[in-house]
Nucleic acid binder design. Structure first.
Length: 521
RNA sequence: GGCGCUAUCGUCUAGUGGCUAGGACGCCAGGUUCUCAUCCUGGUAACAGGAGUCCGAUUCUCCUUAGCGCUACCA
């Protein structure tokens, strides 16, 4: 008999702690790739069970970042005005988060909206003898742990409430509304084994497992309970998450067993690391996806980069550039690495520049504009050119981009090294001299450029003709002609070629800058 | 401390019981060039250590070491 393959369902379930972490992005991406590759469902769930860590706007932020990165999901939470298409499910407004809607049959997809559910399941566990109430106060727990540490014992709950409380006492305390938590009764000396899709067989002994709190005294579940309950109810088949969850997986398996539920397949993906190999953190650079977008990295490059951190198609592949479609086609969880990967910006820069080079000038212009508009030199230029129409300005900027495209590592660099396109730079006349040339030679050189360039009319003002005419005039002494010209056009030690600069600046401006130079010497 | 995971150039990685251990980024050198960048060519650089299995281990096993993660009424 052929066993029917269950439809693949995965989820990305971040906690709204402020922004989308770059490591979270990779987890989301691997889930997305796995779902798309297997024609499965990718759901987005919000794990907001920690009231203390609530951050205003975090959920909205998270979703927006994911959407900006171009990852789409089929179920769960969405921004109210989401742009991509999803299947036709019922749509509910989130009660907790304004501007957020929930779509799907298995919701709500916000954990704080499922509190009754967790309570029910936790109480069921108590009724079945798989979990128990605990009324211990934090102070006692702390003292207990301290003592255990001093005695070099692993800090674990001593089961005081399980051992000493009678049913009547428990009920009495509950009646009196004493703060209570529900703890999982972890069986002793048992070995929990499971097959991890990236790590192979992993095993833990339950003796090292604490009686995990499942339900907190504030009425919220802990991650462990909420995660297991939701993954089951939402019919998740594959749990793809960060390696930091590996040690708590046996607790989750114990929970599935206690409920009598089918255990999903686990895949714990390697951590993203700082240069010093510690878990990627804010302290050592930007970790928010939005930071990279703000710096002018393209989403395609970030996705490509992050995908290759811990995964590679293997089999001798030398491909470095992958579109999202190619990633989907080639992705395989079995090819995911076990060891953590250092997040190295140098390679991101290179990747980004590769993507930048492939863009059309039109697309580049569109992408660059928001960055440019924040630059002071651009604003000044823009207001100094009020008579220019928007189209004329766009035309000029596209010329600048034509020249800069191959020199860019990210979008925010546009114009940064080439402000002379937007204003005359002050420079010392000594910059104009090519090697050991004399004042006379310099004057001659500039006059020659002046003569050559004034001969060209507006129609002839093309990159090709400018270069051709100038080179013809220069003969074998290119430096003598080109260096002074370039220097006076740019006022800079280094820049694109004088041909390119002249072409962008336009005849009028070029002749103006040449005469300014002549006036200086 | 306990438990767990991991280990190929500086970084991302390919790879195999027998190879000159491959690619990419970076770096260095050369070429193109008026400068810088791009681009092209070349170079530098790695199987953590020790046992065992085997005719033969980077590859399989064990130990050591190192790194990291977890060890909360955080996720």
């Amino acid at each position: 008999m052929i066993e029917l393959q269950k439809k693949v369902r995965v989820r990305f379930a971040p906690s709204p702690t402020g922004y989308l972490h770059i490591g979270g992005l990779r987890t989301a991406l691997y889930n997305y790739l796995f779902a798309r590759k297997n024609a499965g469902v990718f759901a987005l769930r919000v794990e907001d069970t920690d009231q203390k860590r609530f951050v205003e706007g975090a959920v909205e932020n998270l979703i927006e970042a994911l959407e900006q990165m171009g990852l789409t999901w089929d179920e769960g939470v969405y921004p109210e005005n989401f742009k991509f298409k999803i299947s036709n499910f019922k749509l509910n407004k989130s009660v907790t988060y304004p501007g957020i809607v929930e779509i799907g049959e298995l919701g709500p997809y916000v954990q704080s909206e499922r509190l009754e559910l967790y309570k029910k399941y936790a109480e069921q566990l108590v009724a079945d003898g798989k979990a128990y109430y605990c009324f211990c106060e934090p102070v006692r727990l702390e003292q207990m742990r301290e003592k255990q540490q001093q005695e070099k014992l692993p800090p674990m709950y001593d089961r005081y409430c399980l051992a000493n409380l009678k049913v009547e006492e428990i009920n009495q305390k509950l009646q009196a509304q004493c703060p209570a938590v529900i703890r999982l009764k972890v069986p002793k000396t048992e070995t929990i084994e499971f097959q991890d899709l990236v790590r192979g067989q992993v095993s833990f002994n339950t003796d090292n497992l604490d009686d995990q709190v499942l339900f907190k005294s504030d009425g919220f579940p802990t991650y462990h309970l909420a995660n297991v309950v939701d993954d089951h109810l939402m019919e998740i088949t594959h749990v793809i998450r960060g390696e930091e969850w590996l040690p708590s997986t046996p607790k989750h398996i114990l929970l599935y067993r206690a409920f009598g539920w089918e255990i999903p397949t686990f895949a714990h993906i390697p951590l993203l690391l700082n240069a010093d190999k510690s878990k990627l953190s804010k302290r050592q650079g930007d970790v928010a996806v939005e930071d990279y977008l703000k710096k002018g990295y393209l989403k395609e490059a970030v996705l490509n980069f992050v995908a290759m951190l811990g995964w590679n198609p293997g089999e001798g592949s030398v491909q470095e550039i992958f579109s999202l479609e190619e990633l989907i086609a080639q992705f395989d969880l079995k090819k995911v690495h076990k060891a953590g990967a250092v997040f190295d910006l140098k390679k991101l820069d290179w990747l980004n520049s590769q993507y930048l080079k492939k863009m059309s000038v039109e697309d580049l212009y569109l992408a660059v504009k928001p960055f440019l508009e924040e630059k002071e030199f651009y604003q000044t230029w823009s207001s100094a050119h009020k008579i220019w129409s928007e189209a004329e300005k766009a035309e000029y900027l596209k010329k600048v981009l034509t020249i800069e495209q191959d020199r860019l590592a990210n979008l925010s660099q546009v114009g940064a090294e080439n402000e002379f396109f937007f204003k005359e730079l002050a420079y010392d006349k000594s910059l104009l001299y090519w090697k050991e040339m004399s004042v006379e030679q310099l004057r001659e050189s500039l006059q020659k450029s002046q003569a050559v360039l004034s001969q060209l009319n507006e129609q002839q003002w093309t990159q090709e003709l400018i270069e051709q005419q100038l080179l013809a005039a220069a003969g074998n002494n290119r430096g003598e002609l080109l260096w002074p010209l370039r220097a006076c056009l740019t006022g800079a030690q280094k820049s694109p070629s004088p041909f390119d600069c002249a072409w962008v600046l336009g005849k009028e401006e070029v002749l103006k800058r040449i005469s300014i130079a002549l006036g200086k010497i």
